[in-house]
Design a protein around this nucleic acid. Sequence first.
RNA 1: AGCCUUAUAGUAUAGUGGUAGUACAACAGAUUUUGAUUCUGUCCGCCUAGGUUCGAAUCCUGGUAAGGCUACCA
Length: 555
Amino acid sequence: MSDTHALNFLEETIEQQIKNETQTTPIVTRFPPEPNGYLHLGHAKSICLNFGLAQKYKGTTNLRFDDTNPETEETEYVNAIKEDIQWLGFQWHNEHYTSNYFSQLYQMAIQLIDKGLAYVDDLTSEDIAKQKGEPSKPGTESPYRNRTPEENKRLFEEMKQGKYTNGQKVLRAKIDMTSPNMHMRDPIIYRIKHVPHHRTKNEWCIYPMYDFAHGQSDAIEYISHSICTLEFEVHRPLYNWFIQQLNLYPSQQYEFARLNLTYTLMSKRKLLQLVQEQSVSGWDDPRMPTISGIRRRGYTPNSIRKFCEKIGVARRENIIDVNLLESCIREELNASAKRVMAVLDPIEIEITNYENAKSEILLAENNPEDPNSGSRELTFSKHIFIEREDFMEEPIKKFFRLSPTTLVRLKSAYILQYERCEKDEQGNIKKLYCTYFPNSKSGQDTSGIAVKGVIHWVDKATALCAEVRLYDRLFLVENPSDSEKTLAEILNPNSLQIIRNALIESSLATTKPEDRLQFMRKGYFCLDKSSTEKQIVFNRIVTLKDTWQKEIFSH
RNA sequence: AGCCUUAUAGUAUAGUGGUAGUACAACAGAUUUUGAUUCUGUCCGCCUAGGUUCGAAUCCUGGUAAGGCUACCA
């Protein structure tokens, strides 16, 4: 085996089954989204699991749209979901739709009726709910429970033909109204919805429920391992019951714990709410945990797969530290991203002892982690910009950037010494005047001066202006899904910071949409989809680790 | 309340009767022309009470805690 890491419980199960020869057919998994929203990181976990398992055991994975509720489902979502899966780097074997099985499912319902295992119920949904009882108390049987198969068949046929209104009748499985498992108390398996379906249009006005569709669809596709999240655990007896009563391929359901991430919400419903309330700009807002959001943010497919691999899969409730996600993308980008310089909050420096008209070319290493990455040219002249926070007139302790008492090196350039500054009426520093050491040029430094700080900069003569968007976590609380407050109350008001006048080095003019760069000391960045040649827009993917900020914060 | 499930460091995840390991986080130090990276070290754990056993995170029993189920959603 190529992988050295321990098996998760599903791999363990599969290997046991292969060993015991209880699994002799190929491993077939499926990813079964309902096309009613965009995929998020929780789905990514499921995708990596389902496709990964099949790959590992030389099987296949189907994509199946679980489209049994026409009220919420749209083709727009189908297309977005497919794009997201492919972006993650997976390709399904077959593309299926539960709606393709509507006829077969209908026939199966009739089989159940024939066997006396399903009946048409005229009760209202309120009455059905009432008769369902409570988990600790048995339910009561519907007065319509004992209709003959003939009558049931006639009524079900009439339901299909549109003779009844929404809710007027349902088809129920006849199982056990006293079961301790609520899902076994004569579950509804077909309901009337006079609603056009995004694929079958007006062909049907009755639609199967999830429980009557999922297991059978799995069986039709010879899914060997049907993997879902823990909340479906109580559905498993029902899943098995239908497969058994209908004598279908014995697909088996397995459950795992869904992904929770700190400071992140992972429920489709609540993410939809963020979009609708315009707390974010859309499903692909770079702060969203949707696949489209993190893609736009600049995360790579590889980093997401790595993340899913690292979080593992188990059956206990969990909440993953969002730091782990960030460490995955940092690890990748540290190795691959080209280093460049961008000043987000510029303050000008005039180098008083530098010749007025002079401009020189300096060479800068593209990536110290990658010896093959080469170098690029930077221009340097009398007027430059540095980061405002890299200068302190009255430095706090341990500050080793530019100050009246400390020298700094300009990255890939010269050592600089503070001379004086110019302030406006409010006392804000407008401009710094410094001197440089001509013999301290990077790579050929003979000055003998040792500096502790190295800061980034851009040349005023050649720098370009760009918009830079800085993102922070969307929520203030560690576990937003646990919070009893409203979304608005726990939303981080500073989750988006837009900087319109950042200055970036000139080499960035040719940045391509797929490029990911490290703005030295500032983080990893990529072009936003809204970026144009005239108006360059960068997204911050993730910050660099920053122990200095922590140090300041602790003061 | 009934049924189902789960319980190993701060957060995850291995360990399947024989020395509790890994990752992320945290902390300290070294290196560093990114307060990054890299390296070294430190901190921190088997929910609990019994039982079986030479030996228990692991097996058994009781307790406790957390999660799930009571939609004509999936």
